[in-house]
Amino acid sequence: MLREMTNVIKTLEGEARAYYAGPINHSSDDFVKILLIDSCFIIELFYSNANGEGKLENDPIFGMPSMLEVLDHDLILLENQVPWVILERLFTISIGLVCQKTLVELAIEFFRNVYPFTISYQPEDIKHIPDLFKKLLVSSMGVDKFEKKMPYRWEPVPSATRLQEAGIKFRKSKSANMFDIKFRNGVLEIPQIRIHEITETFIKNLISYEQCYPSSDDTITSYAILLDNLIDTTKDVEILRERNILSICMNSEDAVQFFNKLYHTTCVNNFKYVALCKDLNAHCQKRWPRWRAVLVRRYFNTPWAGLSTVAAVTLLILSFLQTFFSIKK
């Protein structure tokens, strides 16, 4: 089997070299050897994770949580990618003969702690692991969500604090897709944002991939820009935390820094949330929602405050009626 796998890589060597931006300064034999070793490691890692075969007490990988975190991080980096065509072909002639799951399913199961992917279809023409993630994320949104090319010009939205002051409410969306952010009837629905150790690496590498690959779109970049708009201060973080939209294990100050440096003013040619931003900004221009929000925040923020306000208004009305009837007599 080793010879068969080596021959497969040799037949795909030219295609594999074309995946990399610059020339590969390795001989044919060395390049094939590198791809063989790296591919076999990744395939065995995914398979062992799914079947529990490597999760023994003294296992050098699964027995060390820190090692798994390092692998999660390194396998997402763009500079560490093995062409998916190599992984798929080697999987087919090896573990694929006895495994009931596809390589895509094994990869998703391994990275489930990074993002809870769901398979709505089997993606085609996968280039590498980050490309697989992007295809899964965008496809699970629905084919018609971002199919219309929106105009480039768009206006940033106010922060979560400013939106709340304008009368907008925040609610955790039931959608499992991170991009499915909706605004309707004065409520901004946002799927839960889970931040852990390698989230920054995950998102930044997908943004880099969008920026470097010609036919890619700007979905991830648009998402990062929108979050940067919404989260500007620690108060913004707390607002989203209180509504269970933001799930993080860091303090509010670090969370602000995290969101503010996600994309570093990266260019975007097709911002995906133009309509959403337009609706939010239009709502903020209305006076009544803003006045109502101020009234609720100042006079009805607690049950006792609400009762006191109602009592005061009632007393004022009774005093006015008493004065009115006294004058009328």
Rank of each mutant, 00 (worst) to 15 (best):
residue 167 G to H: 06
residue 286 K to W: 04
residue 192 Q to I: 08
residue 237 V to W: 05
residue 229 N to M: 04
residue 177 N to L: 07
residue 282 A to H: 12
residue 55 K to R: 12
residue 116 P to T: 05
residue 144 D to Y: 14
residue 262 L to G: 05
residue 326 S to N: 08
residue 153 R to N: 13
residue 9 I to Y: 00
residue 196 H to D: 13
residue 195 I to R: 08
residue 298 R to G: 10
residue 104 V to E: 00
residue 66 S to W: 12
residue 176 A to H: 13
residue 225 I to K: 06
residue 216 S to R: 05
residue 118 T to W: 00
residue 218 D to T: 10
residue 260 N to M: 08
residue 217 D to E: 07
residue 34 I to M: 08
residue 157 V to D: 03
residue 313 V to Y: 11
residue 43 I to C: 02
residue 320 F to Y: 14
residue 156 P to H: 09
residue 28 S to M: 05
residue 208 S to E: 13
residue 46 F to I: 02
residue 79 E to F: 06
residue 98 V to L: 01
residue 76 I to P: 05
residue 322 Q to S: 14
residue 316 L to G: 15
residue 322 Q to K: 15
residue 138 V to M: 10
residue 138 V to K: 10
residue 93 I to R: 03
residue 73 H to F: 12
residue 74 D to N: 09
residue 85 V to I: 11
residue 40 C to A: 04
residue 9 I to G: 01
residue 92 T to G: 04
residue 327 I to H: 14
residue 226 L to C: 06
residue 13 E to V: 02
residue 209 Y to L: 09
residue 257 Q to M: 08
residue 124 E to A: 03
residue 221 T to L: 03
residue 175 S to K: 10
residue 46 F to K: 03
residue 152 Y to M: 15
residue 253 E to V: 06
residue 66 S to F: 12
residue 168 I to F: 11
residue 327 I to T: 14
residue 158 P to R: 06
residue 325 F to R: 13
residue 85 V to K: 09
residue 53 E to Q: 09
residue 193 I to R: 06
residue 51 N to T: 11
residue 282 A to F: 12
residue 127 K to L: 00
residue 298 R to T: 15
residue 131 D to I: 00
residue 233 T to F: 01
residue 188 L to I: 05
residue 189 E to L: 03
residue 249 C to V: 04
residue 297 R to C: 07
residue 298 R to V: 14
residue 169 K to H: 11
residue 63 G to W: 03
residue 28 S to H: 03
residue 54 G to M: 03
residue 324 F to D: 08
residue 191 P to R: 08
residue 1 M to A: 07
residue 54 G to C: 07
